[in-house]
Amino acid sequence: MKPQLVLVTSLLCFTANMVVAQDVTHSFLACGQKTYIMGADGEASWTYPSATRDGYVLDDGTIILTLNKSKRHRGGAVVRIAPDGKETLIWKGTQSEVNSAHPTADGTFVITEAGDNPRLLEISSTGKVILEFPLACQKKNHHMQTRMARKLADGTYLAPHLFDFAVFHYSPEGEVLGKLDTTVPGDSDHEIHTWPFTAIRHGEGQTLVCCTHGNRVIDFDSDGNVVWTLTNEDLPGKWLQDPCGAQLLPNGNLVITSYAGGRADVNAPKLFEVTRDKEVVWTYSDGQKVGIHNFQILTTNGEEIAGPVLK
């Protein structure tokens, strides 16, 4: 079972015409400059002593973390933390960075490496390479190559490529099957080249994308048409400041992390939940200038999240 940890937050639900008091509860894993599980008392009930880029809590309580590059792991790494606290190295990065590690239904992990030869790999639980192919992204800026790569139910892969301004869809052989262009339309002199960071496939082939540069979240239909957009104009304040990660909840609501939301105001939300109608129903602040890179909501109102983790 997942850790039964709940943070109770009393807040206001903002709509265009009214303000309604509302209580919502969540517990969550936070990955970023600080790595922790937020507990019921508002304090971290579990912490990890390294910065992280991605993370998952599995059904049995095992935690999978993608570690930032450091003196310990020059090219980043992926580690497993067992419920008893034992740590196991799954993958040691071989290039500049490891940027994601997606646990699949088959017990494998999909990871990406940034560097001179950016690549996607699917590895076994012991780190054996099952599949790999080069990523068709730019090579000049390693850090801005890719982020949250995910394996889809049909065995294909989504990989957001920041400086290519598009989410790429790959076959298992590495063939580019399609792209979702995240450039905001307009005159050529006024186009906004937004950087895709997280891409979530959901519903009937829809893809929800967090774009850090441009501060917006976009939902594409199966034909690549934009059907929903969230910007700061839709929110009570400029809460979208480098929105890196997101999670789509079973009730259709979306939780978003605003990595740089505290630079102007340390009390600005680092996580917030919105409905499809763009009503804010929950917020979390940590008092830091920057912080949560990615996350996983573990429980809502004391109940575990049902179904696959869409983040």
Rank of each mutant, 00 (worst) to 15 (best):
M144I: 07
T146P: 08
T146I: 12
T146G: 04
T146V: 12
R147Y: 15
R147G: 12
M148I: 12
M148A: 09
M148T: 15
A149C: 11
A149W: 03
R150V: 15
K151A: 09
A153L: 14
D154C: 15
T156L: 13
T156D: 07
T156A: 08
L158S: 08
A159E: 07
P160Y: 02
H161V: 03
L162H: 10
F163Y: 15
F165A: 09
F165M: 10
F165S: 09
F165Y: 12
A166C: 13
F168D: 00
H169Y: 04
H169S: 02
H169E: 07
S171D: 06
S171I: 14
P172K: 06
G174R: 08
V176H: 02
L177E: 03
L177P: 04
K179C: 01
K179R: 14
K179Q: 07
L180S: 03
D181F: 00
T182E: 08
T182H: 09
V184E: 11
V184C: 06
V184A: 08
G186V: 13
H190D: 14
H190N: 13
H190M: 12
E191A: 10
E191M: 14
E191G: 10
E191P: 02
I192F: 02
I192K: 08
H193L: 11
H193T: 02
T194K: 00
T198W: 03
T198Q: 05
I200G: 13
R201W: 04
G203S: 14
T207S: 08
T207L: 00
T207M: 02
T207R: 01
L208P: 13
L208G: 10
V209G: 09
V209M: 10
C210E: 01
C210Q: 01
C211K: 01
T212P: 07
H213Q: 11
H213R: 12
H213W: 08
G214R: 02
G214V: 02
V217K: 02
V217D: 06
I218R: 11
F220G: 04
D221R: 10
S222M: 11
S222A: 15
D223S: 14
D223Q: 14
D223P: 00
D223H: 12
G224V: 10
G224A: 13
V226C: 06
V227E: 10
V227D: 10
W228N: 07
W228A: 05
T229Q: 14
T229P: 10
L230D: 05
L230F: 05
T231W: 04
N232R: 03
D234G: 11
D234Q: 03
L235N: 10
P236F: 10
G237Y: 09
W239F: 11
L240C: 11
L240R: 13
L240M: 12
D242E: 07
D242R: 07
P243W: 01
P243Q: 04
P243E: 00
P243M: 00
C244S: 08
C244Y: 00
C244F: 07
G245M: 00
G245L: 02
G245S: 08
L249D: 08
L249H: 14
N251Q: 13
N251C: 15
G252C: 04
L254P: 03
L254C: 00
L254H: 01
L254E: 06
V255T: 04
I256W: 06
